[in-house]
Computed example of a mutant assay.
Amino acid sequence: MMLLGAIVCGFLLDLAIGDPHGWPHPIILIGNLISWLEKRVRAVCGTDPDKLLRGGFIIVVVVCFLSFSVPYLILLAAGTVHPWLRFVIETIMCYQIFCTRSLRDESMKVYDALEAHDLPLGRKMLSWIVGRDTAELSEEEVIKGAVETVAENTADGIIAPMLYMFIGGAPLAFLYKGINTMDSMIGYKDEKFLYIGRYAAKLDDIANYIPARICAFCMMAASFFTGLDAKNAWIIFWRDRYHHLSPNSAQTESVAAGALHLMLGGDHYYFGKLVHKETIGDDLEHAASLHIKQMNLLMYFTSITGLLGFSLLQAVYLFTAG
């Protein structure tokens, strides 16, 4: 029950204050660790594919071990002092893992720029939250980019860590965030990261496989509660949920595309190179800045739906086990 309380309180803290700029954050520490390890591996392995592959495996092992063991030992030490100290620290850890408020705030910067008819600023704001090149995007492409990143990050930034919290508390959620951060930093398929990031990318696909699908069903339920097109979300999900290079990303993007009547996906440039992707959804509406607000509302309701669902399952488990 204390774990359940820590998760709920952490989630509410995230909704209330988000991630203020300048505050210390453990995910930044994980990112710095990954960056340092990558430099060391490249210095030792050079450009040899086999060595880079083995070096990438070492990065995965080290990051996973530290991402789990450090918060585990902190909570273990806190628990020996007093259970309530452990509760407070785990609440703070859960709060730091969630990104609901920051995802909304960062995507709304794109919305605000477009509402002010400042497309260059909108492109710049989008570049902070997506990996694609944004300098030449049209207004409609900027809007779709914001919608896509909110839809995808609802899964790997909220529902996935939430699921792992309920299973193994903050340490397991931090382990997941370590995996996810590795994927976002080195899990690309271009020439630079093809070998050094292969294990990180594969592990991220595995870690997100179940959470992405849970999130998709939570999002379909949320589309009904928010008055969006839940029926079309269901149809597009079953039709387009694998229209992506990742086995997981289109799970939620397809739901969002159906609910909002947008066509997402398609070809985009990454680091100056054109990457071909299938489209997701049907072009039933012209993309407007309002769709960013609608996507954020859908993201909030999806998060709450997931929290209530996991909490109910946890309560049933505790009741039957007791």
Rank of each mutant, 00 (worst) to 15 (best):
K192I: 01
K192R: 15
K192H: 13
F193P: 05
F193W: 10
F193E: 07
L194C: 06
L194P: 00
I196V: 15
I196H: 07
I196E: 08
I196N: 10
I196M: 12
G197D: 04
G197V: 00
G197H: 04
Y199P: 05
Y199G: 00
Y199K: 15
A200Q: 02
A200E: 01
A200I: 00
A201I: 01
A201E: 01
K202G: 00
L203S: 02
L203E: 01
D204K: 00
D204F: 02
D204M: 02
D204W: 03
D205A: 00
D205V: 00
I206A: 11
N208Y: 01
N208W: 02
N208T: 00
N208A: 03
Y209L: 09
I210Q: 12
P211H: 14
P211Q: 14
P211D: 14
A212L: 06
A212E: 08
R213L: 10
R213N: 08
R213S: 06
I214C: 14
C215M: 08
C215N: 12
C215K: 07
F217P: 09
F217H: 15
F217M: 15
C218W: 04
C218E: 07
M219I: 00
M219R: 03
M219Y: 00
M219Q: 05
M220C: 12
M220Y: 11
M220H: 09
M220W: 06
A221C: 13
A221R: 12
S223V: 07
S223C: 09
F224A: 14
F225E: 02
F225H: 02
F225V: 11
T226D: 03
T226P: 03
T226N: 09
G227P: 08
L228H: 10
D229P: 07
D229H: 10
D229L: 10
D229V: 06
A230F: 15
K231Y: 11
K231T: 11
N232Q: 13
N232G: 04
N232E: 15
N232I: 00
A233C: 11
A233I: 12
W234I: 12
W234D: 09
I235K: 14
I235S: 10
I235C: 05
I236V: 15
I236K: 11
I236N: 10
I236M: 08
F237W: 12
W238L: 12
R239D: 08
R239C: 07
R239F: 01
D240V: 03
D240T: 03
D240S: 06
D240Q: 08
Y242W: 09
Y242K: 15
Y242D: 14
Y242R: 13
H244W: 02
H244I: 04
H244G: 04
H244S: 07
L245H: 07
L245V: 05
S246Y: 05
P247I: 07
P247E: 11
N248I: 00
S249L: 04
S249A: 15
S249K: 13
A250C: 08
A250F: 01
Q251E: 13
Q251T: 09
E253R: 02
S254Q: 11
S254Y: 03
S254M: 06
S254P: 06
A256V: 13
A256N: 13
